[in-house]
Structure formats: structure tokens, C-alpha cells
Design a protein around this nucleic acid. Structure first.
Length: 860
RNA sequence: GCGGGCGUGGUGGAAUUGGUAGACACAAGGGACUUAAAAUCCCUCGAUCGAUAAGAUCGUGCCGGUUCAAGUCCGGCCGCCCGCACCA
């Protein structure tokens, strides 16, 4: 081989474009159903087209691409699509601020970002691209909405919402900051509005119990969903209201504390409260007060328990003649259980706070273990632990768990209570008073009520001639759009002007990718072949909502005949965030990494005025803190492969990754090092020979090759990309150090090493790998090359290094035959000078031998 | 408050799942090449003692335990991070 004195640098600009075109020309990544091959569906959470791609996208899509390319090389028929989560508020904000149409703004962003993603060299089947704002997509969403409506999976009801009086819109809870609208800054009001809901609670139990089937999901995400669904077993109990026919229904998980009840309380939104408020100005005032305070976290944190005595009395179900006062209390939620509770102050902290404030009796009914009843009192701290029932009539002496069952039976026999399971999960409100979303396809008719838009009239498209110069929903004030004839009676009627929550759009896009141009929401044959998604990858921020909604939607689709499975995502991986140090000027202004420079003294200063810069901790890249690095700049200066390599190196993919300049330049240096390595070997390096008379060093390299194949295969299967990267470095170091002898077998080993290295790197740095592949004289695309197979014989070492310990402390290592028997190993170990010296004069008590691992000598 | 996770060199992180702690990389320092710089190549790099050697001792947040053997298992602290939060 000839050493070339000055190898040129790897010219990524030319190479990356060239190989991207080659893949496209050869349709390498087009996916077609093929029943004869095992399929693999890799999906990354699709991006919102905000304008430009950010580092989070680069990390996400690099990981997905590694999996897609790896699986393809392993012989799978891979589906790896991309689309756009294109409806949403930012488009309307842009419309208001920049006077552009949301559609124009969105499609322009898609154009830009598609180009940027293509520069990354992702193995995506672009022929399947979809955008949720395209009527060709959302008409199917409307169709399914109507199917859900037919099946009773959608309903409309009045509900309390956060209303922004300036922007004239409903705000999500996350959009209310300290009681004010996040955009307008106006004090948010509670209003009752008629809203559409998806009946996700129908599936609460199933969504919870099926979590255990999702074995390829992170335990953390499953737990978060489980907590979110929040199942609790308890009882619904009907209390008699004194001097009335009405009953008060409450829900409790602690029927065992029923004898400790000292009051009942209902939510300010409870029907009984509203009824009473009609006759009591004072109560009405109290209820209004509760509404004004709202339920935002900050408020609840400090909010005192407050109540209003209704004057009504409630009959205790088991104690003759005992009655309890009924309060309206600010801490009782209408949305959970029945909106009414009984209060047992001794064993619930909230009830105790309330009782102490209003001077209500506190009767302990659960005695903690190893406590004397005479000395047990409750002061300001409720006892919520386990124990034995006291002061509880027929429950006395029973262990509290047993007591729950006994009293449940008693109530059920009496007919005044039933065992019930309650969930924290609420139905999913999907109405948004927004323009840029999927229109809800119904018509409101004065005579016929709610009439679905006839299916043949779908899609209900958004009108284009809308304005954003005034607050409120443009659909609502559009001159003609909402005025239609009732499809049922033909009289004048109005369209629904609310649009759907954008989470609806992303709840089924994965199914649409299977047959993106079908004139049905999904083509059953295609979906049956491709679904479920085998590997889904995205941010942990979607652990609950998006993933839960998708699980619900898939079930709803199954019920309406659009899906044949329940769980859309078989495997889930949640990637960490991309972080960067933060910089602030002396006056506290955030500075971008581009605005700072290291001065002669090694200090970071502002490029503008050379003033010192405060370096803050590494945080998620965000525009507000200006600690962002634009991926487009990086790809421009270093190429896509360098960016991809850096993304995969060092940090485990589920943890946060810190972006550093030295890290990216290190990755760039490595790209060139590889290029030089391959450049040293002219075209057509030696083909593997039949001669297997390897020298010891030949054998060593061959073993390394196969151990690397084995290791990287396992690493990529289990998302340990950082480990795979380290193995590549190890192999490259070894190849660099390898001195090939002047014979065919030695040359062949080197040849095998380089070839294998290139194939193994293919999924991670595809352009460079193609370039190297072609450089060593290979014809045909590496993208179509299959994954190397492991020679199992090469994984087994003839000799192993064994650690020798004395009383558990390492004293030396010896080299022994693999699986050598204990007596042989002992002999070698005890003859080892350092061991012999350490054991001088000691009598050996025990020797522990773990073959191929360790020999531990224990002396007296 | 409830639930969960994490804690290893100057830094990011490895560690065959109880068996040689620190792989690999970054940063740093030294050297070679060069008129010089960049690039590249070589060496050192957990701490302490020792001479920059041989060697020894200590060392995975802290304290204790189990074990022949603990970063890994158990108990108790400390610190950080995340999720939920008036859910009866």
C-alpha cells in the first residue's frame, strides 16, 4: 500500500449532496408492503413547523434514522415516514404579529424545514409526507369524528373553562400564568361554555391495565400515565338529607372512617349548591368568590380551606339521630367522584384543617398500631396510616382494611351504598375557539339541534379570507362561512365555529402514514401490515397527553372499524433534551453563544463591548435564554455526519446532552481521521483470502472485528448509541495500530476490518460511510448493504486474563486457558510472585474460583 | 404532601448485571514535525506517599449492613432533578 503524504480533507459538502441524490434516485427508502418480509415501522414524533429545525429535532431524527438504517440492513422492510403537525397557535400569532396568513406561514415553514431535514440525510420515505393542516388529511379526521359521534364516543356539554376576556378565547390550564392570560395578561375568568368532549374515560380502566403490556416502554412513562389515570377503589354512599326527600351522594375511599364523620361538604359547582344559592345571597357571594380564585396551582397552594354552612343536616347512615352539617367548601372538586364528600377530620388532613377552623368535632376512629387508645389524640395532624377501628360500633376491633369490606357489605345490604371505582382521568375537551385547526363538522339548527355534516360534504374546509386584526375567533365573525342550511330540515342554521385541539391531529397520524393517499382514513390492508409502530421516539414532555390520547384514539378507531389493534406504539423511547450553557451580560441580559468570545486572558467577554460575561448552568436550548445553536449553521460548517456523530457520542440518548463547541470539533476531527484511514488504502484493497494462517496479531484484529459487530448490534438494538460510538473508536484505534504483514491472510484481515467498520458506521454517519465504501472500490450503495454477521468462533478467547484477589483485594492478574479447571488456575496463581509474596506464611482457608472471571484466596 | 429517578476523575460517561472501577471521548500538560501557525503524530493524565521509578495506601454523595467479593444488593441520612398535586 502506498502512503499518501497529504491526504485531502473529506469534502462533505460535495459528498453529502451526492449521496442524498443517489439514495433518492435509487428509491432506497421507499416503503412497500411485502408480506414475505418482516416489517419494521420506525417513527419519530413529527415536528411542528415553527420555522427552522432545532437541535432537539436533529437529536430525535438522528436516533430514528440510526434505527431505521440498522433495521433495514438487518433485513427488515422498514417504514420511516415524516410529516408535519401543522395546526396550532403559533401560526395565528404570526398572523397577528406579521400580517401573514396562517396557511402561508405554515407552508413556507414546512418548505424550509423539509429542506433542512433533507440535508441531514435521513432515510425517510418522503413520498408519504403528510401535513395535518391539509384538507386531504383533516377530512378523514372529520369523518372519524362523525363515526365517534355515532358511537357515543363524542358528546357536548357545558363545562367550566378559563376565559381570556381580552383575546376572547378559552385558555388551556398551562396558558394561565398566575391567574392571567399568557398573551394578553388579562385576569382570567371562569366561564361556562358548551364544549365537545371525547369520552376517554370510557377506556380509563383499559388504558390503565393495558400499560403492563407495554413492556418496551420506559417504566417511568407507564407510571406517569398510571398516576394520571389515577384509579381508586371506594364507595358511593347515599346520605339522607334531613327533612327532604333528596339524597346526598358522596364518594369515599375510606368507608372505614365513616363513624368519624363530623360534616359533609359539596363543591361550589354542585347542583344543590346552585339551588340553595338562588335563595341565599350570602352563599351566592361565596360561590362567586370560589370561581374568581380559580383552581390554578399557585392559588391552591396558599388557599385556605373555606366553607359556607348551608344549614342543612345530613343523617348519619349508622348512628340513629346523629346528623352532620352540610357545607359548601372550596376544596371539593365537582369533577371528581360526585362532587360531595363526608369529612372525617381525624384521618384526613384537609378535613382536619377544615374542622379546626369551623369548630367541628374530631373523633379518632383508627388507632395506630402499638398505641393505647386512652393516650391517642388528634391535634393538628391527621393520622392517615393503618390501624384498628375504634369508636366505630360494629367495626370496633377490626383491622381497617377488613373494616372497609365489612362496612361496604353493610351499606350494600342497607341499599345506601355501592362499591365503586373512580378515576382521576377526565374526558378530553377538544373545543378550541381558534381558526387554525380542524373544523368540527357539525351544524347547529334551532329546530333539529346538533346535526352532523353529511359525510359526502366533507371536508369542512377552513375559509381562506379571514382577518386577524381583532381578537376572537375569525371563523365566528366570518361573513358567510358559518351560515348554512340545516342538512336535515333545510332551514337556516350555523356551523360549529370551534376547531379541534391539535392533539387530535397527532392522535392518529401514525396510522395515516401506512396509506397516506387513501381515500379512507386508513387502508385496512396497509395498516394491518405496518401497524403497530415498532419503535416510536420522542421527547418525555409527551409522556402523558400525546401518548395517552393516541392510545385512546386507537381504541376509538378500533370501535369504529378504523383500526384492528389497541396499542399504537409497541416500543417507545424518550430522548433527553439538548442543552447549552447560558450566558448573561453584567446587566443580566441573556447572550447568545455567538455574542461571546474568549479574550487573551481566557475570560469570556461580550463581542459587542468586551464586558465580562456571567456563565450560567447548562439548560435546555431555548429562544428566551438565547442559548441556542442553529443546526443549519453546524451542517453548513461541519456537515450532517459530524452533527449526527456528535449527537450519538458520549451522552446516553435518554439523558440530556450538552452541546459544546469542543465536542462538535472533536466529531469533525474524527470524520477526517476515518477518511485518512481509508484514504491510505488505494482502490480494491486485498480481497479476503482462503488462507487462514493468521498470526497472533491477525487473530487479535479478527476477534476485535467480530466482537465489535456483536457489541454494536446489541448496542443499537438497545439504544446505547454512545456505547456503539465508543466501540467504533476502539476498533479504529486498533486498525490504526495494526501492522499488516506482507502476506495475504494478514492483508485480508485488514481488509475485512475496514469493510466491516464502514458497514457498522453506515447507520450513524451514512454519507461518509458511502464515500468510504466507494473509496475502497465497492460498487453499489452501502444503503443497500446488509449488516455483517458475527463469526461466533471469533468471540471466544483462547486465553483469558483472570484477576487474582487475596481476601477480596486485587493483587495481580494471570493469563490462563479459557475454562481452565480450578487446580490448574490455583497452581498458576500461587506461583505468581506477587501472590506468593503476599501469602508468605499465611494459611489458606478458602479459595473461590469463578471461571474466566476471578480467583479469590482467603487466608486465616 | 404523594410518586419516581439520579449521585463514578477537571468534564461527558463506561463497567460483561455481585467478580480487575474509570473503557471511549473531551479538556489540560509535555514532546515531534513546521520559519511560524493550523492540521497531524507520540507521551502523561483519580488522589496521597514515593523520585516523574518500583511499590504501597485510599477512592464510585455520607453512615451502617449482607457477602469470599459491593459503583452494583439491603437499611438510614444528605443533595439534585422530574412528574402529579385540595382526587376525598
Amino acid at each position: 500500500m502506498t502512503e499518501i503524504s497529504d491526504p485531502p480533507r473529506y469534502t462533505f459538502k460535495d459528498a453529502e449532496v451526492r449521496w442524498q441524490k443517489a439514495w433518492e434516485d435509487h428509491h432506497c427508502f421507499d416503503a412497500r408492503e411485502d408480506q414475505s418480509r418482516p416489517k419494521y415501522y420506525v417513527l419519530e414524533m413529527f415536528p411542528y413547523p415553527s420555522g427552522r429545525i432545532h437541535m432537539g429535532h436533529v437529536r430525535n431524527y438522528t436516533m430514528g434514522d440510526v434505527v431505521a438504517r440498522f433495521k433495514r440492513a438487518r433485513g427488515f422492510n422498514v417504514l420511516h415516514p415524516m410529516g408535519w403537525d401543522a395546526f396550532g397557535m403559533p401560526a395565528e400569532n404570526a398572523a397577528m404579529e406579521q400580517n401573514v396568513h396562517p396557511a402561508a406561514w405554515t407552508w413556507q415553514n414546512i418548505e424550509t424545514m423539509r429542506g433542512q431535514l433533507k440535508m441531514m440525510g435521513l432515510s425517510i420515505d418522503w413520498s408519504r409526507e403528510i401535513a395535518t393542516c391539509d384538507p386531504a388529511y383533516y377530512r378523514h379526521e372529520q369523518k372519524m369524528f362523525l363515526d365517534f359521534l355515532d358511537q357515543g364516543l363524542v358528546y357536548r356539554r357545558e363545562s367550566w373553562v378559563n376565559w381570556d376576556p381580552v383575546d376572547n378565547t378559552v385558555l388551556a390550564n398551562e396558558q394561565v400564568i398566575d391567574g392571567r392570560g399568557w398573551r394578553s395578561g388579562a385576569e382570567v375568568e371562569k366561564r361556562q361554555l358548551s364544549q365537545w368532549f371525547f369520552r376517554i374515560t370510557d377506556f380509563a380502566e383499559e388504558l390503565r391495565s393495558d400499560l403492563e403490556k407495554l413492556t418496551r416502554w420506559p417504566a417511568r412513562v407507564r407510571l406517569m400515565q398510571e398516576n394520571w389515570i389515577g384509579r381508586s377503589e371506594g364507595m358511593r354512599i347515599q346520605f339522607k338529607i334531613c327533612d327532604q326527600d333528596q339524597k346526598l351522594e358522596i364518594f369515599t375511599t375510606r368507608p372505614d372512617t365513616l363513624f368519624g364523620a363530623s360534616f359533609c361538604a359539596i363543591s361550589p359547582d354542585h347542583p344543590i349548591a346552585s339551588e340553595l344559592a338562588d335563595e341565599s345571597a350570602e352563599l351566592k357571594k361565596f360561590i362567586d368568590e370560589c370561581h374568581r380564585l380559580g383552581t390554578s396551582e399557585a392559588v391552591l397552594e396558599q388557599a385556605e380551606k373555606q366553607g359556607h354552612d348551608t344549614g342543612l343536616r345530613i343523617q348519619h347512615p349508622f348512628i340513629q339521630g346523629k346528623t352532620l352539617p352540610l357545607f359548601v367548601a372550596n376544596f371539593v372538586l365537582m369533577e371528581y367522584g360526585t362532587g360531595a364528600i363526608f369529612g372525617c377530620p381525624a384521618h384526613d388532613q384537609r378535613d382536619l384543617d377544615f374542622a379546626n377552623k369551623y369548630g367541628l368535632p374530631v373523633t379518632p376512629v383508627i388507632l395506630p398500631p402499638n398505641t393505647a387508645q386512652e393516650t391517642f389524640t388528634i391535634d393538628t395532624e391527621a393520622y392517615t396510616g393503618p390501624g384498628i377501628c375504634i369508636n366505630s360500633d360494629f367495626l370496633d376491633g377490626l383491622e381497617f382494611d377488613k373494616a372497609k369490606a365489612v362496612i361496604a357489605d353493610a351499606l350494600e345490604t342497607q341499599g345506601t351504598g355501592q362499591r365503586e371505582i373512580n378515576f382521576r382521568l377526565r374526558d378530553w375537551g377538544i373545543s378550541r375557539q381558534r381558526y387554525w385547526g380542524c373544523p368540527i363538522p357539525v351544524i347547529h339548527c334551532k329546530d333539529c339541534g346538533i346535526v352532523p355534516v353529511p359525510r359526502e360534504d366533507l371536508p369542512v374546509s377552513l375559509p381562506e379570507d379571514v382577518t386577524f386584526d381583532v381578537a376572537g375567533n375569525p371563523l365566528d365573525r366570518h361573513p358567510s362561512w358559518k351560515h348554512v342550511h340545516c342538512p336535515s330540515c333545510g332551514k337556516a342554521a350555523q356551523r360549529e365555529t370551534d376547531t379541534m385541539d391539535t392533539f387530535v391531529d397527532s392522535s392518529w397520524y401514525f396510522a395515516r402514514f401506512c396509506s397516506p393517499r387513501s381515500d379512507q382514513p386508513v387502508d385496512q390492508t396497509a395498516a394491518d401490515y405496518w401497524m403497530p409502530v415498532d419503535q416510536y421516539i420522542g421527547g418525555i414532555e409527551h409522556a402523558i397527553l400525546h401518548l395517552l390520547y393516541s392510545r385512546f384514539f386507537t381504541r376509538a378507531m378500533k370501535k369504529t372499524g378504523w383500526a384492528s389493534l389497541e396499542e399504537p406504539f409497541d416500543g417507545l423511547f424518550t430522548q433527553g433534551m439538548v442543552c447549552h450553557e447560558t450566558y448573561q451580560s453584567e446587566s443580566g441580559q441573556w447572550l447568545s453563544p455567538d455574542d461571546i468570545i474568549e479574550n487573551d486572558m481566557g475570560m469570556l467577554v461580550s463581542t459587542a463591548d468586551a464586558s465580562p460575561v456571567k456563565v450560567g448552568r447548562s439548560e435546555k436550548m431555548s429562544k428566551s435564554k438565547k442559548n441556542v445553536v442553529d443546526p443549519a449553521d453546524i451542517i453548513e460548517s461541519y456537515g450532517a455526519d459530524t452533527a449526527r456523530w456528535f449527537m450519538l457520542s458520549d451522552s446516553p440518548p435518554d439523558r440530556d446532552l450538552e452541546w459544546t463547541e469542543s465536542g462538535i470539533s472533536g466529531a469533525w476531527r474524527f470524520m477526517n481521521r476515518l477518511w485518512r484511514l481509508v484514504y491510505r488504502y488505494p482502490d480494491g484493497i486485498i480481497k479476503p483470502g482462503t488462507d487462514d494462517a493468521w498470526s497472533e496479531t491477525d487473530l487479535e484484529l479478527r476477534q476485535s472485528i467480530h466482537k465489535t459487530i456483536d457489541g454494536i448490534t446489541k448496542d443499537l438494538e438497545s439504544f446505547r448509541f454512545n456505547r456503539a460510538v465508543a466501540r467504533i473508536y476502539e476498533l479504529v484505534n486498533q486498525i490504526t495500530d495494526f501492522k499488516a504483514e506482507d502476506n495475504q491472510s494478514s492483508q485480508a484481515v485488514l481488509s475485512e476490518a475496514i469493510e466491516t467498520l464502514i458497514v457498522l458506521m453506515g447507520p450513524m454517519v451514512p454519507h461518509l460511510a458511502e464515500e468510504m465504501w466507494s473509496k475502497i472500490g465497492k460498487t453499489g450503495l452501502l444503503a443497500n448493504q446488509s449488516w455483517p454477521t458475527v463469526d461466533p468462533a471469533m468471540l471466544i478467547d483462547e486465553m483469558v486474563t483472570l484477576a487474582v484477589q487475596i481476601k477480596g483485594k486485587l493483587k495481580g492478574t494471570i493469563s490462563v486457558r479459557r475454562d481452565a479447571d480450578q487446580s490448574e488456575v490455583e497452581k498458576i496463581a500461587l506461583e505468581e510472585p506477587s501472590i506468593a509474596a503476599a501469602l508468605e506464611g499465611k494459611s489458606i482457608a478458602q479459595i473461590i474460583y469463578v471461571p474466566n472471571r476471578i480467583l479469590n484466596v482467603v487466608h486465616a
